[in-house]
Design a binder for these strands. Structure first.
Lengths: 205, 205
DNA sequence: ACAATATTTAACCGCATGGTTAAACCACTT
DNA sequence: AAGTGGTTTAACCATGCGGTTAAATATTGT
């Protein structure tokens, strides 16, 4: 794996390059040569650092999952924020996050589709996210009559669907609904305004 | 394209096989040999009928899109159904559709991600869906005070996000939220019950 | 039985691509 | 000047896979 001397900076340059390339076109359609080019380095060095394309792909996948998950679950597990506040914060953060990373959502789904085994492997390393805080808050809100009952899982899936999906389907939606590249950010800004109310109203009794 | 004699049935067998294979693993990771095997036919014949793998992939992609879109837009464009009824019908139909076709959603997103150009090409052939009926119904519902204003596009994206996304992310969700294969259909049945109210309540003023 | 059509067989080509290697080359330190 | 860790060069190998081909063989209609 690390038979000879490695430079941390170079490793990161290659990782970042791989991130860029893999996310843009998907692992299968990406060439190691592209990654080398993107990193300003040659193919031999890429293998020298990471051995195989698959290993590099695994690293990028895990890194991607490890970036997104905490952003969502960190907020959901926060004791100090009310459910209402969480919804508002997650909507804002997720839309900003994916707006800055157009290929992120589609990449994740593509990879999980092409290599479902990897998900299990990665999940085994990082535990699944804590949902007890969320569950308690939902229960309390239900008891207080502010909310209809819903499982934490359904709640999370609703959030992700409304927030992540549009980005995953961006090329399709642009074509299907005639949203031009210029109109996209406006569309998403409108979503940022719209969704908190939509979600919260949807949960009220 | 069709230089010699073709049998309709065989062409369909190959198409169906390609559908199965492409949807399961994605176009890039699928081999023409697999398709031949799945069709109970040999590789030469696949090329004899469809020329190239890309042509076959295009056909499958268009067929997939052509199956899903009418299901959703057909209902949305229906004059006779109220918005409320449309939501209920689409929820049921979409969840049933994707439950029977586990790879469908992830496949579509993967393909659009890997080859965004194709979407535009396909869309050029089939026009974009009619939204005027839906727009009018929303306007009327808003004027009648039954609904908060929302653009038809946001409305559609919300629907698709809530309905299609979970299937696209199925392997991820199963691992992430600990939903076992056996629990999945229960999870989806619960969604079928839950979503109409969630969506309609979310739209009310 | 004959001809036309449909399908298989089995070999083959070409090429892109992942991966390897060995030697040369730098940049920096001592 | 010599050494050391990092990087390039440029060739090379192996292989998988898309695609082709020509002849053999079924299958079908007449």
């Amino acid at each position: 794996m690390a038979p000879s001397s490695h430079d941390r900076e170079t490793a990161d340059r290659i990782l970042d390059a791989a991130h860029t390339v893999f996310l843009r076109r998907g692992t299968a359609k990406s060439r190691t040569q592209e990654i080398a080019d993107e990193a300003g380095v040659n193919k031999a060095l890429v293998h020298y650092y990471f051995g195989t394309k698959a290993a590099l792909a695994d690293a990028i996948f895990e890194r991607a999952l490890g970036t997104l998950a905490p952003l969502m679950f960190g907020i959901l597990a926060d004791e100090k924020r009310s459910i209402e506040q969480k919804v508002r914060d997650i909507v804002r953060e997720q839309i900003d996050f994916h707006s800055a990373r157009p290929y992120f959502a589609a990449y994740l789904i593509s990879e999980m589709h092409a290599e479902p085994e990897r998900v299990a492997a990665v999940m085994a390393r990082r535990g699944s996210p804590p949902r007890d805080v969320l569950r308690r808050q939902i229960r309390e809100a239900v008891e207080a009559g502010r909310m209809r009952p819903i499982s934490a899982e359904q709640f999370i899936v609703n959030l992700m669907g409304l927030l992540v999906f549009p980005f995953a389907l961006r090329p399709g939606l642009s074509a299907l609904l005639g949203i031009k590249p210029s109109g996209w950010s406006a569309f998403m800004e409108e979503r940022k305004r719209l969704l908190p109310d939509f979600i919260l109203a949807g949960l009220r009794p």
